[in-house]
Each structure stands twice: as C-alpha cells, then as structure tokens.
Amino acid sequence: RAAQGRTYGNLGNSHYLLGNFQDAVLAHEQRLLIAKEFGDRAAERRAYCNLGNAYIFLGQFEAAAEHYKRTLQLARQLKDRAVEAQACYSLGNTYTLLQDYERAIDSHLKHLIIAQDLKDRIGEGRACWSLGNAYTALGNHEQAMSFAEKHLEISKEIGDRS
C-alpha cells in the first residue's frame, strides 16, 4: 500500500509534466488518500501542493486556492518555513488570478516576511514584484511605487536584468 502511494505520486507527476492535468488530479487524489491512511503528513502536504498546481492549469482557481490553503496549514504543522513561503506565494498568485487583490496582498506579505527571515533575496524580489502589481490593481500607487523600487533594488543586487 505504501508503494502504491508513492507510485500514484510519481504517476501524477508524470501526467502533470506531460500536460495531462485531469489524469494528474486523479492520481494525486489517490496519493492523498493513501497518505491519509498512513498519517503521512509530509506526503499529504506534497499531494495537496501537486493538486493545487494541476488545478491552476485546469483553470480551476478556487479549487487550487483550497488545496494551497491545506498545503500551507500542513507546512506550518511540519514547521517547514521554505515550504510555507512557497505556499504563500502560490496562494498569492492564485488570488491574483481570481482578482481578489486584498487576499493576494495578504499572502504575498506573508511570503515576503518569510523570505526576509530566510534571507532569500530572489523570493523577496518576487514578493515585491507581486505586491507592486497587486497594489497597482487596487489603485494604491504609493505602495505600488514603494514595492517597485524595492524590486528594482533587489533585481540589481542579484543581477536580474530582465
């Protein structure tokens, strides 16, 4: 049964990389079921994240957000800060796709704080870029400018010309 769980996970990832997102969802749902049977929260966390990603490419953004929220809860329970940051970033982008900019800002700010704690300058730069865009969408140009300046500063520092 444990091997079945791992195999469903691998199968889901193969379907995903081939662009078969519906088949990826079916496989990762099986992986999730088996992870729950075993109380394997790390595997459960991975399955939720993989499901969230597949739902993005199926255009089902509400479903993606629900799965990323579970990813975030489990990342916190597992005390994995890098994964927590990644889940916040995914959630922020998903809320942006849903045009829910207040929630997007909330998630991107959480990502920003963790990126700063972890001294992850690339993550920090991406959070600033995302925040600048979300504030622009809300018409808050002063905040947008502030984050755009921060994004520029970090991009120069890390040599990201694009």
């Binding site: 791992r6 996970g9 691998n10 990832n13 995903y16 990389l17 595997a43 966390r45 991975r46 399955a47 994240c49 993989n50 990603n53 993005i56 490419f57 970033y89 995914s90 982008n93 942006t96 796709l97 045009q99 991406r126 870029w129 995302s130 865009n133 979300a134 622009t136 969408a137």
Partner: peptide, 27 residues
C-alpha cells in the same frame, strides 16, 4: 485602462506559472 491594468497584473503571475509548469513535489 482596465485591460492595461490586467496585463500588468498578469506579468508576475505568468512568470510564476512558467516556473510552476515544470515543478513537481517529488516522492
């Protein structure tokens, strides 16, 4: 204007989706 705002909005998200397309949580 709304279209332009939407286009601005999408650029950071598009970059994220490009990365996401090749990203999987490996067993």
């Amino acid at each position: 204007k709304c279209f332009r705002m939407h286009a601005i909005q999408v650029d950071s998200v598009q970059r994220w989706m490009e990365d996401l397309r090749h990203m999987t949580e490996v067993e």
